[in-house]
Design a binder for these strands. Structure first.
Length: 917
RNA sequence: GGUCGCAUAGCUCAGCUGGUUAGAGCGCACGGUUCACAUCCGUGAGGUCGUAGGUUCGAAUCCUACUGCGACCACCA
């Protein structure tokens, strides 16, 4: 760490080596011992495990940057922090990827067979998997890599099995024939959450079902040309009519009452199906008659259950029409079958009409295929008993959501929870720990923690394991405790459960967050985390979600290579308000990340400046040079304390963007723009040794503290500089910012007077610069500034920093009130520019030969208009008796002062205006 | 259909408990070869805070309705 500082900010030169050093020194490793001995409070985050096949994208960038900011901040606050990293085996997603590879070789998974296929997935996962974890290192994530987990690890698999068995024994897991969401491409069942509704413009087909036999007395059904009466039913999926086993009407529907118990002839099939009465039917919708297809619609299935109707499955798993369909449709794809069925009905004059109909069509969340509801035998978790405690947890405030509005979404879902279909017809995942005895006449079902060898009932060794695997989320929902060693009672579990904060995206609130809370309460007796921070979505500049398929993504590693991890992180954090989406333009990476890059560059250069100018001799601590601190020193130390307070407050409330903004404005707008400028001559020794010592002490103190504050957001550049920053004489300091103490506000350094004085000074300099620009006075021409009506604050500031004002405002002389009687006497009539500062001080710059008097008059006039407007508003308020009596004292006082100041300013401006003409 | 969110400068957004002369970054205009930084410095233009009501002494901020956009949920076939 003793190489000279590069003149150019080049993050690639130091980021990776710094990270390696931190990791090697074990800074990221948590110690359960110190927590169990009560020496430190824990702060724990479990990572939302990315898919093992994933490659880092901006969404991960956001998610993990937020977690790292929180982890680093809490670590600096002295908490024993643990950030558990890991990956998810991602059943369908991973299987799909490997199946695609096979397809490229002209093979399917069936060609390999189950065992070889799973082995193939494993070898691919071992080979290229977990890339994303290494990528997290590149953006600085301080995970405890010694505790990396994978959902298919032996330990986690044991947890999965334990949970399955426990729930089964408790009667909360059952197997049954129900309508589930089926993906005909992935060839597996899906949970309700995995079937995503996509608004689709479709058609609503009205079909005519001829009544079998004559129309009863009193009913008025329309009739076909051949004289048969018919009912009209509506459907969006006409091909399913081939599997209809009834038509339902509402029991109280007078139109159809006489028909209940009769039959219709199901077109195209030659089958006769009954007309039943069920309250599920909405009389208002369509004709009030509904076709019932128990094998392909969940509601129809329930109706069928109530009426003892058979279920006729007319589709194969691939969603082609099966042998239950009439011969002419057999083997057709469902959409082709739809067209043919419609054509056939139309030809038979049984198609009443077709309407446009927009509705939400469920799609597979993995492959986007239209999901087919399908009757099949699956495993389910009974959710209601698990949901109740999870509901109580949020209602009693034991789990809090930020932003709060997600609480309602969470609670609504739990209140309307449906059972969870957990079996998947895949090969990649946790096998369901269920065996069936194949011995003649036995048929025992065995659910066990250990693989059984014999049937406990008949002793047969002829056992067959259930071929299915579990939903990926069945392992994810255990993540907060399975990663810590459960079901064993490990030290980690005792020290680090429950975890502290969960940081994730709202998209997986149901998939993951809610289920983790249920599992935590069920198996650990405690909610798995106290706070859930839900961040937004990363979108492109057109507002579209970044995605691989749209090709609108930004590779975070490309950004790291171009501008460094700190630039990436700052840019992300500065936009990451709770729950707000981030917009990034993939077509213009440079301007997207300019804020972060520029800020990191600024930090680098301020550091560079300080390190080059601070000198080699011992730097005193601020406390040791208290008496020689000057206005600028007291000001920046006061501002520093405020920054510490604000940044900490914002972090506590998850306002990461506000924390970032506070840092930006403090460091750039105050430290760099003003303090560093003011202190330059003093560091060079131009103001004597005491002044230099005070300046050096203050610079070191401010940078030390500022780097600490910025470290969670920008860990690399801060560490690179901080390590070289001189340590005040006689003071000890930590060996790295990673483990350095988080600053606390210093009320004793807060100095309202110094702030007022500096504010006035800053405004004065700005005003002189503005006037110079306005009147086009070249920088080369030095000015004279005459001030009057100067406040005590400004007077003090001028005494302290007159040289600085002259330098920064490019002013030759500053004449204040009595010190320049001739100025006072002549100022009104002399040509020159006027300005009035907020605290009432007047600025006058003589500009003989430059000033356009007409321009100045107009300017003064406009200024007076503006001030009069303000004054009218303030006077209006003060004239309002209600305001004066009801508003707080301090507010009224402030308004009075404002009015007085405005009046004074107006008066003086009008005198000037008069003098000009 | 239900629930929720958003609407502030050309763009992207801040504005935390109602009281500021409503802010930032990017973009724009103009001026800058000061030995930390042109990834910079300085100055400036640009806003009836979606519309209409209401509560209040006081509203960008709270309430209601409306308009527009978005998200989530939902069995109206």
């Amino acid at each position: 760490m003793t190489q000279p500082l590069a003149p150019q900010y080049d993050p690639t030169a130091f980021e990776a080596p710094l990270y390696r050093g931190w990791k090697e020194r074990g800074y990221f490793q948590a110690d359960a011992g110190v927590v169990l001995r009560g020496e430190r409070q824990p702060y724990v985050i479990v990572i939302p495990p990315p898919n093992v096949t994933a490659v880092l994208h901006m969404g991960h960038g956001l998610n993990n940057t937020v977690q790292d900011v929180l982890i680093r901040w809490r670590r600096m606050q002295g908490r024993e922090t643990l950030w558990v990293p890991g990956t998810d085996h991602a059943g369908i997603a991973t299987q799909n990827v490997v199946e695609r590879q096979l397809a490229a070789e002209g093979k399917t998974r069936y060609d390999l067979g189950r065992e070889a296929f799973v082995e193939r997935v494993w070898s691919w996962v071992r080979e290229t998997g977990s890339t994303i974890l290494r990528q997290l290192e590149a953006i600085g994530c301080s995970c405890d890599w010694t505790r990396t987990r994978f959902t298919l690890d032996p330990g986690l698999s044991r947890a999965v099995r334990e949970v399955f068995v426990r729930l089964y024994e408790k009667g909360l897991i059952y197997r049954g024939n129900y309508i589930i969401n089926w993906c005909p491409r992935c060839l597996t069942a899906l949970s309700n959450e995995e079937a995503e509704g996509v608004e689709t413009a479709g058609k609503l087909y009205h079909l005519r079902y001829p009544l079998a036999g004559p129309q009863p007395e009193g009913t008025r059904l329309p009739t076909l040309p051949d004289g048969r009466a018919y009912l009209v039913v509506a459907t969006t999926r006409p091909e399913t009519m081939l599997g209809d086993t009834a038509v339902a009407v509402h029991p109280d529907d007078a139109r159809y009452r006489a028909l209940v118990g009769r039959e219709v002839e199901l077109p195209l099939t030659g089958r006769r199906i009954p007309i039943v009465a069920d309250e599920y039917v909405d009389r208002e919708f369509g004709s009030g008659a509904v076709k019932i297809t128990p094998a392909h619609d969940p509601n129809d299935f329930e109706v069928a259950q109530r009426h003892g109707l058979p279920a006729l499955n007319v589709m194969t798993p691939e969603a082609t029409m099966n042998e239950n369909a009439p011969a002419e449709f057999r083997g057709l794809d469902r959409f082709e079958a739809r067209r043919r069925v419609v054509d056939a009905l139309a030809a038979a004059q049984l198609l009443e009409r077709v309407e446009d109909h927009t509705h939400a069509v469920p799609h597979c969340y993995r492959c986007d295929t239209v999901v087919e509801p399908r009757l099949s035998e699956q495993w389910f978790v009974r959710m209601r008993p698990l949901a109740e405690p999870a509901l109580a947890a949020s209602r009693e405030g034991r789990v809090r959501f930020t932003p709060q509005r997600w609480t309602k979404v969470y609670e609504d879902w739990l209140e309307n929870i449906r059972d969870w279909c957990i079996s998947r017809q895949l090969w990649w995942g946790h096998r369901i720990p269920v065996w069936y005895c194949r011995a003649d006449g036995c048929g025992e079902t065995i659910v066990a923690r250990e693989d059984p060898t014999h049937c406990p009932r008949c002793g047969s060794a002829s056992l067959e394991q259930d071929p299915d695997v579990l939903d990926t989320w069945f392992s994810s929902w255990l993540w907060p405790f399975s990663t810590l060693g459960w079901p064993d009672e490990t030290e980690d579990l005792k020290a680090f459960y429950p975890t502290s904060t969960l940081v994730t995206a709202p998209e997986i609130l149901f998939f993951w967050v809610a289920r983790m809370i249920m599992a935590g309460l069920e198996f650990m007796g405690k909610e798995p985390f106290r706070e859930v921070y839900l961040h937004g979505t990363v979108r492109d500049h057109l507002g579209r979600k970044m995605s691989k398929s749209l090709g609108n993504g930004i590779d975070p590693l490309a950004v790291v290579e171009l501008y460094g991890a700190d630039a990436l992180r700052y840019t992300i954090v500065s936009q990451a308000g709770p729950g707000t989406d981030l917009y990034m333009n993939y077509e213009d990476i440079e301007s997207t990340f300019a804020p972060g890059r520029n800020f990191a560059n600024k930090v680098w250069n301020v550091g560079r400046f300080a390190l080059l100018r601070i000198g080699d001799d011992a730097v005193p601590a601020v406390e040791d040079v208290k008496d020689s601190l000057e206005l600028a020193d007291r000001w920046i130390l006061s501002r520093l304390s405020g920054a510490v307070r604000d940044v900490t407050r914002h972090l506590e409330a998850f306002r990461l963007h506000e924390a970032a903004n506070t840092l930006y404005h403090f460091f750039w707008g105050e430290v760099a723009d003003w303090y560093v400028e003011l202190v330059k001559p003093r560091l060079a020794g131009e103001a004597g040794e005491a002044s230099r010592a005070a300046a050096r002490a203050t610079v070191v103190e401010v940078l030390d503290q500022a780097f600490r504050l910025m470290h969670p957001v920008m860990p690399f550049v801060t560490e690179a500089l901080w390590l070289r920053l001189p340590r005040p004489a006689g003071r000890s300091r930590e060996e790295s910012l990673v483990v350095a103490r988080w600053p606390v506000p210093a009320p004793e350094r807060e100095d309202a007077e110094a702030e007022a004085a500096m504010n006035a000074l800053i405004e004065l300099i700005g005003s002189v610069r503005g006037l110079r620009k306005e009147y086009d006075v070249p920088v080369s021409q030095e000015l004279e500034v005459r001030l009057s009506n100067v406040s005590a604050a400004l007077r003090g500031a001028l005494e302290a920093e007159e040289r600085a004002v002259r330098r920064l405002a490019r002013v030759r002389d500053i004449l204040v009130d009595g010190r320049a009687p001739e100025a006072k006497a002549g100022e009104g009539k002399a040509p020159g520019a006027h300005a009035v500062l907020r605290d009432g001080a007047e600025v006058f710059i003589p500009l003989a030969g430059v000033l356009d008097i007409e321009h100045e008059r107009r300017r003064l006039h406009a200024e007076m208009e503006r001030l009069s407007g303000l004054l009218r508003a303030v006077d209006g308020k003060l004239a309002n008796e209600q305001f004066v009596t009801r508003a707080p004292e301090s507010v009224v006082a402030r308004e009075r002062e404002k009015a007085q100041a405005l009046r004074d300013q107006l008066e003086r401006l009008s005198a000037k205006l008069a003098a000009l003409s």
